[in-house]
Amino acid sequence: MDPCPFVRVLVGNLALRIPVASKPARTGVHPSSSPCFCEIRLKNFPVQTAMVPLVPPDSPLPEAHTLAATFHLGREDLHRLAGKSIFSGKTRLTVAIYTGRRGTTCGVSSGKLLGRVSVPLELEGSEVRACVVQNGWVAVGGKGSTSESKPSAQLHLSVRAEPDPRFVFQFDGEPECSPQVFQIQGNIRQPVFSCKFNCKSIAERNARS
């Protein structure tokens, strides 16, 4: 039996460019001198957090390839996201960028929201072939264009979806006496292993105790 289709969504190569203000702020610290982090969200999955390195304006992206977040999608997740794309618009991966340090102070987040980036996820066919969803600079808070007249912060990120096939197994029977192992694919259960030990059943042991 073939493995079950799983898809792995990888988010990485994060970097942030913040334009230098023509007039320095009267109070506070300019975001370009503060640490930055982001929260990466995909609906119905736990939020993942990663640091975002700052790079000077007009500088090339560093060569280092870093992984910031990974989401593992099974068959049910793929069907749910495909259904969402029909009735509720495209599925989107959202990255919220914050300046300041991670954590909370007196129950309030210590970071200040700088902006968000939303990347539509096209996962059709990703069960059999890898695809690059996004790779490049995106205007923070914009719709993906980096050629706006007003300077804005820019986030570099790469989003990649690739097949991650897995064999899924399920145990059945009485593990102490007659364990059985089934391979699962959708609604199909195929036995792959069974064994019977010379021992008393649970009912017999309970009757004697």
Results as ranks from 00 to 15, higher is better:
Pro5Tyr: 01
Phe6Leu: 02
Val7Phe: 02
Val7Gly: 07
Arg8Gln: 11
Val9Ile: 06
Gly12Gln: 02
Leu16His: 09
Arg17Cys: 09
Val20Phe: 12
Ser22Glu: 15
Lys23Gly: 04
Pro24Ala: 06
Pro24Trp: 05
Pro24Leu: 12
Pro24Thr: 13
Pro24Glu: 10
Ala25Cys: 14
Arg26Trp: 13
Thr27Val: 10
Thr27Met: 06
Gly28Ser: 00
Val29Ala: 14
His30Trp: 10
Ser33Asp: 14
Ser34Ile: 07
Ser34Gly: 13
Pro35Trp: 03
Cys38Trp: 01
Glu39Phe: 12
Glu39Ile: 08
Glu39Trp: 06
Lys43Ala: 15
Pro46Gln: 07
Pro46Tyr: 02
Thr49Asn: 00
Ala50Cys: 03
Val52Trp: 08
Pro57Val: 06
Pro57His: 01
Asp58Leu: 11
Asp58Ser: 15
Pro60Trp: 00
Leu61Tyr: 03
His65Thr: 12
His65Glu: 11
Thr66Met: 04
Ala68Tyr: 05
Thr70Met: 05
Phe71Cys: 00
Arg75Cys: 10
Asp77Val: 00
Leu78Gln: 11
Ala82Gly: 10
Phe87Gln: 14
Gly89Arg: 09
Lys90Cys: 07
Lys90Leu: 05
Arg92Lys: 12
Leu93Asp: 02
Thr94Lys: 14
Ala96Asp: 14
Ala96Lys: 14
Ile97Pro: 02
Thr99Asp: 08
Arg101Glu: 13
Arg102Thr: 14
Thr105Asn: 15
Thr105Asp: 09
Thr105Ser: 14
Thr105Ile: 12
Cys106Lys: 09
Cys106Val: 04
Val108Arg: 11
Ser110Asp: 12
Ser110Asn: 11
Lys112Pro: 05
Lys112Ser: 13
Leu113Arg: 10
Val119Pro: 01
Glu122Ile: 12
Glu122Met: 15
Glu124Tyr: 05
Glu124Ser: 11
Glu127Gly: 01
Arg129Gly: 12
Val133Ile: 15
Val133Asp: 07
Val133Lys: 06
Gln134Cys: 11
Val138Leu: 15
Ala139Asp: 15
Val140Thr: 09
Gly141Cys: 11
Gly141Phe: 10
Gly142Pro: 11
Lys143Glu: 13
Gly144Lys: 04
Gly144Asn: 08
Thr146Phe: 01
Thr146Trp: 06
Ser147Met: 14
Glu148Ser: 15
Glu148Thr: 12
Ser149Thr: 14
Ser149Glu: 08
Pro151Glu: 02
Gln154Trp: 10
Leu155Asp: 08
Leu155Phe: 03
Leu157Gln: 02
Ser158Met: 11
Val159Tyr: 03
Ala161Lys: 02
Pro163Ser: 06
Pro165Glu: 01
Pro165Arg: 00
Phe167Gly: 09
Val168Arg: 06
Phe169Ile: 06
Pro175Gln: 10
Glu176Phe: 09
Glu176Arg: 09
Cys177Gly: 12
Pro179Ala: 02
Pro179Glu: 04
Gln180Trp: 05
Gln183Leu: 04
Ile184Arg: 07
Asn187His: 08
Phe193Trp: 05
Phe193Ser: 08
Ser194Asn: 10
Ser194Asp: 03
Cys195Gln: 13
Lys196Thr: 15
Lys200Cys: 04
Lys200Gly: 05
Ile202Thr: 15
Ala203Gln: 04
Glu204Val: 09
Ala207Thr: 14
